[in-house]
């Protein structure tokens, strides 16, 4: 039992990172209807920038962290301007492929600058484990979980109360109506990419503190799909919960598969089997907007 509790907790931590990445994904999808296959690479770039600033430039962690956020903001603008804006109005497959192309470009840039070895962040938080319900939990894990919750609350409030957040929602709902109310649609598109890149880079920094980073970090982006489909493609709450559920589910399934079936590496597919099931029975997820259409 303790084994599964341990799995459950580590699942929550991994899940909270999935939630952060999924949050970025949903923000882009909500505002621009672009399905971003490069989300994992945004995480990776954020993590490597922070790594370069803390380890290679020897800046204090907090300074490096905020500089990483600023960099991600600019990266978001550049990506939107150069790559996504010409794709407005193109068919879905072109938009999907352009983000896939973007992901390979980002991945190879990271490999070019930092190589493929695992890089380790210097420890920021104390290493002593904290006891929760009789189980030792590393402070980094707690910080990761807390940070995800805080960010989720901030973004929920942002979309609910701030003028900018409301105009982003309006754009997502109906671009023409939003434009005629005086909202700059193009700025909203750029902004959503900036926010997504920033949120992802926070996820990357946390991951770097937990496991270290390597050039394969981008595969994380694929795990976002089960999370967002489970939660509903356009729901922030759905992304947050979906990420947590996927994180827990894949860890527990992995443990169970190892114990009962003797199968290794089940972690990689458990979430995707869940994904297929959800798509078959409830394609708009737990909290997604329903569009009634018979195919």
């Amino acid at each position: 039992m303790e084994y599964y509790l341990q799995l459950f907790i580590s699942g929550l931590v991994v899940g909270s990172i999935y939630s952060l990445v999924a949050l970025g994904f949903v923000i882009i999808y909500k505002a621009t209807k672009v399905v971003n296959f490069a989300q994992g690479e945004l995480v990776m770039v954020g993590a490597y920038i922070c790594f370069a600033l803390t380890v290679q430039a020897r800046l204090p962690f907090l300074v490096a962290f905020f500089m990483t956020l600023a960099f991600s903001f600019i990266l978001g603008i550049v990506i939107e301007r150069l790559i996504l804006r010409p794709m407005i109005g193109e068919p879905i497959i072109s938009v999907v492929m352009v983000t896939i192309g973007l992901s390979s470009v980002l991945k190879s840039l990271v490999q070019l600058f930092w190589g493929t070895q695992i890089q380790v962040f210097p420890p920021v938080l104390p290493q002593e484990p904290v006891m929760i319900a009789g189980l030792p939990v590393a402070p980094v894990y707690l910080a990761a979980f807390a940070l995800s919750v805080i960010l989720f609350l901030i973004f929920s409030a942002f979309f609910k109360y701030s003028r900018l957040g409301i105009s982003m929602r309006a754009t997502a709902f109906d671009q023409q109506a939003a434009a005629s109310m005086g909202i700059g649609i193009k700025n909203i598109f750029a902004l959503s990419w900036c926010i997504a890149a920033m949120v992802s880079s926070i996820g990357g920094v946390i991951l770097g503190n937990i496991n270290g980073i390597n050039a394969q970090l981008g595969h994380l982006g694929l795990k976002v799909f089960p999370a967002v489909i489970l939660g509903g493609l356009d729901s922030l709450l759905g992304a947050a919960l979906g990420g947590l559920i996927v994180g827990v589910l894949e860890n527990v399934c992995d443990g169970a598969a190892k114990e009962f079936l003797g199968l290794g590496g089940f972690k990689d597919v458990a979430a995707f089997i869940l994904l297929v099931v959800i798509l078959m029975i409830k394609p708009y997820g737990l909290f997604g907007a329903r569009e009634i259409e018979r195919v």
């Binding site: 399905v35 999907v96 489909i229 590496g265 089940f266 597919v269 297929v276 798509l279 394609p283």
Partner: peptide, 24 residues
């Protein structure tokens, strides 16, 4: 089979799942 109910991006994600499951 999922193409019965899914189209566009949802089908793309379903086939992505097929890819990863088959790889496994």
């Amino acid at each position: 089979l999922p193409s019965l109910r899914l189209k566009g991006i949802y089908l793309a994600i379903a086939t992505l799942a097929a890819q990863l499951i088959l790889e496994y």
